[in-house]
Amino acid sequence: MDRFLIRNNEKPNDGTQNSEPAPKKKKYDESSVKVRRYLSEYLGLGFSATKSDPVNAQCVLCGQVLANSSMKPAHMNRHLSTVHPSHVGKPIEFFKRKQEAFASNCLEIAKVASVSSKPLRASYAVSYLVAKQKKPHTIAECLILPALVKVSEIMFDTKTATALQSIPVSNNTISRRIEDIASDIVMQVIEQIKLTKMFALQLDESTDVSGEARENILFCQNLQSRTTGEELFKVIDKFFAEGGILWDWCLSVCSDGAAALTGKNNGLMAWIRKKNPKAKWLHCIIHRQALASKRMNAHLHETLNEAVKVINFIKARPLNSRMFKLLCQEMGSEHQHLLLHTEVRWLSRGKILNRLFELRQEVHMFLLEQKSAFS
């Protein structure tokens, strides 16, 4: 409205030499906006003052807040007569009691909604344990917290058990806590990289049970399309750009010998060397040992295959597995089960051979009873 009045009060220029130039238009200044003050008489209309800046009017009956520009008796009267017609004409003492009750309710809601520091820390501690043990997020609400409550009731008192129930451990809460912890760890790693300005990468592209390819060393990201060196580089480069990490700080890259990672034309290392030609590539020692185990001596490889066949004969059949367990119990063996061999995890080869050697007498006796050719 002020700008409209200024524009219409300007003198028009008739084009003559003696005509004075029109005054310049005043720019809109937010500081010129009128800020209304709250008056104590407004409580008689059912409105109290908020603690905001500028102050606003809030209805003590329904909690609706009017803007500072709308803090006028006419607007308050209209709200009271349309929304709360039964309270029109009430004395100011009535609205004072309503104001006290409204403030008390706000404090109670704040106490219920807020979480004190100790339950919050306990929630993060439980979330960290759940993530570390790779358990479902629901285990905290279904098992951990009820177990803590029961133990507290038995060992201490009901008051302690009631205090434990205030720890937020719902499924969604645990999920958010784990995300917060993971983000904090990533930020700490990034800060350390920025301080030292040097780092080495360890990369391994893998596919999970759902068939989605992932990069999961420093971070876990889904590769939306093909798992080429260019796509891998885009994912890592985007992460570095968001974290403020420079490729010039990269000293070396460690990975397996896959073409998508080590190709000199389109592999990941080729894209990294475009950013940092001094970066070196090293073959991962775990993958090297896995390759060495695949190319072992023929006699040793045959022995390993025979051991796997013996284990599968016992473990693959539920009846044989139960009978072997009973035999181990009767003989007082230290172990009662054999371990299955996993091709993906090459370290399982040593573990299954150790367990088979420790139970060699029990296995031999069981194979004789079953009249198996493996005996």
Rank of each mutant, 00 (worst) to 15 (best):
S175R: 11
M155A: 07
A163C: 08
K159H: 08
T162R: 10
I181L: 13
Q165Y: 00
I178V: 11
Q165C: 10
H137C: 12
I185W: 07
L164G: 00
R177S: 10
A147G: 12
R176Y: 09
I178P: 01
N172C: 07
S166A: 12
R177V: 07
M187Y: 10
T158L: 04
F156Y: 15
I144N: 07
K159I: 08
K150T: 04
T138Q: 11
Q188K: 15
E141F: 04
E179K: 15
R176E: 12
E141Q: 12
D180Y: 06
V186H: 09
I174H: 01
N171S: 12
K150M: 09
S152L: 07
S166W: 01
T162F: 01
I167P: 02
T173F: 02
S170W: 03
A161N: 02
K159N: 07
F156G: 01
I139W: 12
V149N: 02
I144R: 08
H137V: 13
S152R: 04
Q188P: 03
S175H: 09
T173H: 05
L143Y: 08
C142T: 15
Q188I: 07
D184P: 07
V186F: 08
I139Y: 15
K150D: 04
D180M: 06
K159T: 11
I139Q: 13
M187L: 14
I181A: 14
D180W: 03
P136L: 11
Q165D: 08
T160A: 01
N171Q: 13
A161R: 00
K150G: 07
C142R: 15
C142K: 15
I167H: 01
Q165E: 14
V169F: 04
I181F: 11
Q188D: 13
V151N: 00
E141A: 14
M187Q: 14
A140C: 10
N172Y: 08
E179D: 14
I178G: 03
I185L: 14
T162H: 08
P136V: 07
R177A: 06
K159S: 09
L164V: 02
R177H: 13
A147Y: 03
T160Y: 01
V151D: 02
M187R: 12
M155P: 00
E141N: 12
I174C: 03
M155I: 01
I139M: 13
I178C: 11
N172Q: 14
N172V: 09
A161Y: 00
V149C: 06
V186L: 15
L164A: 00
D180K: 09
L143P: 05
E153C: 05
N171Y: 12
S152T: 06
I185H: 09
S175T: 14
